[in-house]
Amino acid sequence: MYPREFEYIAPSDLDEALAALDANPGAKVLAGGMSLLPMMKMRLLSPDAVVDIGRIAGLDQISDNGDSISIGALVTHAEVAASDLVMEHGAALATAASWTGDRQVRNRGTCCGSLVHADVAADQPVAALALAATMVAVSSSGTREIAAADFFVDTMMSALEPNEILTEVRIPKAGPGTASAYDKLGRRGGHTDYAVAGVAASVTRSNGSISAATVAVTGVGSKPVLVGEVADALVGSDGSEAAVEAAAAHATCGIEVLEDLYGSVAYKTHLAQVFTARAVNAALSAAG
């Protein structure tokens, strides 16, 4: 309940923040704090310095870039969940954000923070994967754009360097016939709490068949991951119930499914298939 001592740095602009990260190699970036502070309170994490980016202007916007939308580093889960723009172009992410934590957590916690935290059972990373999001990482030496597919490295480990800040996540706009969805089983059942298994899917329908698909699975392995085999099986199919079910059978292809308090390997494997089918069907029906 009592964090260790640390230096608190509250820069007023991004350059100052980046300089602070360079000067304090062990520093952690604080935005909403919904992941960082509980770990610090429990002393599971004790950084020497905390760089609070909460007062930096311009990071709290969801913006329309023409061919993509951007969600800034300080945009909260609640704002993502309530955004018409996100709902239109990344419904999977809006849904995932609405099922993250509880009201209080959604009011402070940020979408970007959830992505960087990279919890194995978090909702939003798989939505970012399915939506082929781009992570915009800024450091004093410049800006890197990292594809979501390359971002989630391992359990609670992202591709972000210690001196980088994820200033925005960029989602390509959904074209005609494209829609996404997220579905999950939460730890207490229903949609609440971390995912025992969760699946985000994005599909594009054209001329009666599926022309593109991405599917990502959370909760079952050591990190959120894209499952190409499901997408491959979907593309070219007619999106019928049978086709979706057949594709969903590949839901854990290439994933080492891990047991935890909430599921055995067999159960999680099964759930990944169930929610793959549910998420894909929901996306298909939204795609029209």
Partner: peptide, 27 residues
């Protein structure tokens, strides 16, 4: 609690419900 799960510390901050145990006073 210390894991930000119980909500007993909920306050209104700039009109929104937040957990006062999961914020630094400085924030």
């Amino acid at each position: 609690c210390e894991s930000s799960y119980c909500g007993a510390c909920t306050i209104s901050l700039d009109g929104k419900a937040v957990l006062s145990c999961t914020m630094l006073a400085a924030q």
